[in-house]
Design a protein around this nucleic acid. Sequence first.
DNA 1: CATAAACAGGTCATCCTTATCTGATTTAGA
DNA 2: TCTAAATCAGATAAGGATGACCTGTTTATG
Lengths: 143, 143
Amino acid sequence: MQITRQADYAIRAMLYLARAGKGQRVATSDVAEAQHIPPSFLAKIVSQLSIAGLLHTSRGARGGITLARDPSQITLLEVVEAIDGPIRLNECVTGEGICVFEGTCPIKPVWCDAQVELVRRLKSVNFAMLAQGQQAEFANAIG
Amino acid sequence: MQITRQADYAIRAMLYLARAGKGQRVATSDVAEAQHIPPSFLAKIVSQLSIAGLLHTSRGARGGITLARDPSQITLLEVVEAIDGPIRLNECVTGEGICVFEGTCPIKPVWCDAQVELVRRLKSVNFAMLAQGQQAEFANAIG
DNA sequence: CATAAACAGGTCATCCTTATCTGATTTAGA
DNA sequence: TCTAAATCAGATAAGGATGACCTGTTTATG
């Protein structure tokens, strides 16, 4: 019930790029240093984010990585799912035919509902908001 | 980002007990068969639930397991956390001093808020509701 | 006493996560 | 053209989590 370290790294890397500005090339090693991410580990994460179409890479001298879209067009959900795969709170939520008790199970709706809400929240946050620190709508308290 | 199979099994076992009625002794093997849970695996889960104080066990012939409390007094959250441990969407949500960027990180509040909401939902569902199928308040749709 | 059942624990295979390393490939600039 | 910088791709490995099984041990009932 937790996102992976990789996904966390990916988010922080994307945030760093968003702050650098769209179209601004940044070396992966710079991102790694600034965000305290193991450099060789970040390389793999960058590769995945590139395949997912979330950032562009430029090889060669003075190369680097940059956001593929405007930060406001990239949501937290996209980054998380690009690394960890689709969010699902329980196996049965994936679709039909997974659980034997499909249809009569009173628990599945609870998971489905909670998942929809979670996804909705992550989708509502984009990297322009994060880069500017405009997440004031979210409370900071943990009960 | 998913509860473990163990937690899912635990929930289904508790649901079965809730349906049987409080104080009604049920053999673990019966639960396993009815809920399609590997018997020897369920034994371990039952042990954890017992330690957590969620159910009582009786050894010997005609022994079995039964809910420790009234189903209405046992929440979905309790069962999940008894097996999987406390819910936390990201490592940093646990407390202070985990993340280097504590305080300036714009992402942490998002996780905290989403987690509070998730916990609140799981806490709002008890096993009396589940046993009677009274989860109509929850939508069944997945977006 | 014999039986049924929970209990404790150890073992095992498999996968996931995290992380590192290496070599190949590409490209900008001197 | 040559070199340095940087990504790309794949192999590797440690460690832990997960799911599952199996074997005794204890205990209450008949």
